[in-house]
Each structure stands twice: as C-alpha cells, then as structure tokens.
Design a protein around this nucleic acid. Structure first.
Lengths: 263, 263
DNA sequence: TCGCAGGTGTGAGAATTGTCACACGAGCTT
DNA sequence: AAGCTCGTGTGACAATTCTCACACCTGCGA
C-alpha cells in the first residue's frame, strides 16, 4: 500500500533523524530521542556516504529479504517498515533473533568468500530498504578511515546487543526472558503514555514466544499473571507497561544504555 | 611458570601460525590446520601491523584481565594461554560466554565513550597477552583500509559465533546445549586420536554447566548417559568424543565452518 | 593417618516449562 | 445464519531441569 513515496509512519527518517543527530557527532546522547539505530553511531557525513552506495527499494509486508542459505553479500538499511530475522529448525520451530525498524542497519558479514545466510529476514510491514553491496562497502571503508572506525563501533554495538540478549534469555528463566523482551521493546518502540509506556507494535503470543524460545501458552500465562498484578495492561493487541521497575527486577536489569537494550 | 619466553605449548604462534596462512590470504582454508582465531581472518601484513601496536605482557593463571564494570578501551590478543569470559548475576551464578586460546583476539568495542565491560575475563592458564589500545587501533584502521576491512570481517565472524551459540543454547534443550558445547570444544581444541577426538582441555562439570546455563548435576547425568552409550569416554579429566555424528544429531548441527562453530 | 577440600555420582522430590485438548470470541465469507 | 480462520484462555498432565541431600573418591597438607 504505502510503499512508494508515502511517509505516513516513517517520516522521521529523512528529516528529523539525520538533522537530529547533527549536533552530537557519532556518539550517543544520553536520551536524545526515540531514534536509535544507525543515527546513534554514524556521523551525518558518513551516513551520507553509506546512503550514497545504497540501492533503494520499496518492499511489501510479508516479502523475504533473504532466506537461510542465500549468499550473504549485502547489508540492509531499513528506511521504513519493520523486519523480523528468524532462524528455523528442521522440526518446524522458529526462533526470532531480532526485530529491526526504521533506522536500523542489519545483515550478515563474515570473513568467508561464499558465505550464506544463517537466518531469514522478513518484512513485517510495508517499507523501504537500502541495499548495500559488500564490495561497495569495502571500497568505502578503504577510502574513509573515519567511516571504518564508526563502522567498527557499529559492529561492536550489534554484537553487544546479541550478547546481552543471550544473558537475558539464558539466566532468569522464561519470565526473565519475557520481561527482558518487554523492556527491549519499550526501548525500541515505546511511546510515553503519561507515565506508562505503550509498545507501538502489534504482536501475538506466538510471536513473542518465538522471541524468547518459549511456547505460546507459557507466554499467555505469564502475560496474564502480569496483567493481574497490574504490571502491564493490554487493549486490542498492544501492550502498555505500567510497572517497568517490576520488569527490571525479574530479569535483573543492569541499566545498560538504550542503544544496547533493544530487540 | 612458563610465562616469559618459554614456548612449550604456544610455539605455533610466531612461526607456523603466520607462515601457515601466508598462502591463502585473509580467507579460511577448508581445513588448514588446528589454528583458528586471528590467523584465519587477517593477512600476515595486517597481523604484523596489529602486533606492532600491542603491549606484550605475561599473565599468570587465575589473574583477571578485566572485571565487569572496568572501562573497556582495549582489545586483547592471546599469544599463549587460555581465557574464560564470564558474566555473573547478583545471586552468585555465573555464565561463561566464551573460552579463548592462543591466536584469539577478544575484548569489547562499542560506540560509547565511557564504555564499561559487561563481562569479566580470567586467565585460566599461564600465558602471554598483547594489549591493543582502542585509540591505537583506531589510528591503524584509519591508515590502512585493508586492515579495516579485515577487521570488519573479524567482527562479523565474532558476532556470528555468538549468534550460532545462542541458537544452540536455546533451541534443543540442555542436551542440545551440551552436545553443541562438545562439538565446539572439539573444533577449538580437539586432537585426533585415531578416529576419536580428544579434547585437549581440562574442565570439571561445574565449568561445563556454566557454559550452557545448566547445573553441575544435569551435566554430570548427561555425560554419564553418553558414556554409557559409547558416545564419549573420559579418563582423568579429559573427554574423548567417540561418536561425533550422534552429538551433531542432538543439536541439529548444520555443519557451519569450524571458524564459527567454536567456543 | 587424619582431616579436609574439591570433585564426581546419584536418588527423591520440587519447580518450571512444554504438550495436548478444547472452549470461546472476533472478524470475515458465503 | 452457518462456517471458517485466527488468536486467546485455561486445565490436566508429562517432560525437563533444578534443588537438596548425601555418599564416595582422590590428593594433599598437618
């Protein structure tokens, strides 16, 4: 539907996003705005360089950017829309590794010549992506030392997101994993609702289950328990967090930066 | 003991390691040797550049390279010895994120100015490390585009190791996690023993438990089951893998490259 | 040679989480 | 209105995994 030039939802990108980070140069501001992703790492100049080698493309909800087994020779910049990166096992179960949204850069880069993707990436909302060819990126990194450094920082950030996620998923049971998920979602797409935080994303119990390696039923029970205790509330598919400290307690939140604690 | 110039165990480093990868230039050879780590990613020239900015230092077993909360402004190259990277929770449990050995580069790099370590790193054997200051590294990356590219590849590799580990730990129960651990250990420090693979590392049940987020007792029972079934054998603290395909089956091994499937 | 520390081995029971089965309601189509 | 799909809600039970308790071994130092 709104694939082409429509900017109903992702307007922030071209305008506020880039200009918003003009003042802070390459490093995060403590609580700059809701915009994370690329803007918190790359300087405007280097982000311009990256956009310079992108092939832009509108993509519809439901289409796959890549499948497990496809050759991995590109990165993806998500200008608008949302993407789910999943790994599936032979017995039909799937595990959701990450959720990306406007402003995120993702993909797989490893040192192997004929590398193939270990995961699949699916658009979950209509949007627009920029494709960066690995070769083009390498030329750019070669030419611009400062970009190379920022790129390294970005990769470090991405790795740390994965590591902290692993901690949260492994160490405090399924309730801990679910609370971590809610906190991360609140950092990724939370909207302040006079004190409470409404998660600006729709997902059903199964989808949440796939993100924490649990079953739909378990997620359902845990969510209902938290509803009963006034920790969260739900109306029509979206969750609102009423008691963030409680969630933090369950997964022993260590108050890491928002750029790290996200999906 | 053998900290200084002694090379009893890590001799491969200076000589064979570097020269061994001379022919293949920056990319892995399918089954070159037991040497993974840095040599499978960096060209000899760039590895030389990295060693050029290292501060070498002998380190004794048991000493900590860094603690959670220390400022993270360095990388570590492990010339000799072994290192365990752990995350601990307030209730005293610890989770082992990775095990490093001679030839590995590790540490934490993220985009934040005053970044602190999320984990601790402990030497588990006497050895020697090279410390790389973040600033020095950035200068080097700035100057040498080809190094920057290889460095990016290295970071991509490290991230993928973490991601595949997460899959293995989450998707196939504790038995799957344990079998994955054994396979990874076999790739990291396995020695061929006419058909079987002896793991050239000593670790007790508790240590293995911390690597897969299980209890000592569970690990003990699982190992004994596998001993009974002839999948592994144990003598005096070291494990020998007799039936690798069985292990692969339990954790649905997808036969990813050895450089990825490691601790 | 005694006691102790550190590690392994194992049983019993509890807690956690998954599995299966089915009910219910909303929205949609025919 | 009937039938369908999709998602939620929930009970009963099973499987997995943890917890606690204790026995036993080995090596080591007093």
């Amino acid at each position: 539907m709104t694939t082409g030039t429509g900017m109903a939802n992702g307007t922030k990108w071209k305008k506020e996003g880039i200009q918003g980070s003009l003042g802070q140069q390459a490093v995060h501001g403590p609580d700059k705005s809701g915009i994370l992703g690329v803007y918190s790492v790359f300087s405007p100049e280097n982000f311009e360089r990256l956009t310079g080698i992108m092939y832009k493309k509108p993509v519809e909800a439901g289409s796959m950017l890549y499948w497990e087994g496809d050759t991995a020779d590109r990165l993806y910049f998500l200008a608008k829309g949302r993407v789910k990166v999943t790994k599936s096992s032979d017995d039909g179960r799937t595990f959701t590794l990450s959720l990306h949204q406007a402003g995120d850069l993702f993909g797989q880069l490893d040192p192997f010549q004929n590398s193939v993707h270990a995961c699949s990436a699916e658009m979950t909302e209509d949007g627009e992506i920029g494709i960066i060819q690995r070769k083009d990126l390498e030329v750019l990194l070669w030419q611009h030392g400062d970009l190379a450094i920022e790129f390294m920082r970005w990769m470090g950030l991405v790795h740390r997101i994965t590591q902290t996620k692993m901690r949260d998923l492994m160490m405090f049971g399924k309730p801990g994993a679910l609370c971590s998920l809610l906190i991360r979602l609140s950092n990724s797409c939370g909207v302040d609702q006079n004190g409470a935080i409404r998660l600006d994303i729709r997902m059903n119990n199964s989808e949440m289950a796939d993100m924490i390696g649990a079953t739909r039923e378990s997620v359902n029970r845990m969510l209902n328990d938290m509803k009963k205790d006034g920790v969260i509330s739900m109306d029509g598919g979206t969750i609102t967090i009423l008691n963030l400290p409680y969630l933090r307690g369950v997964c022993r939140c260590e108050s890491c930066p928002k750029e790290i604690c996200r999906m």
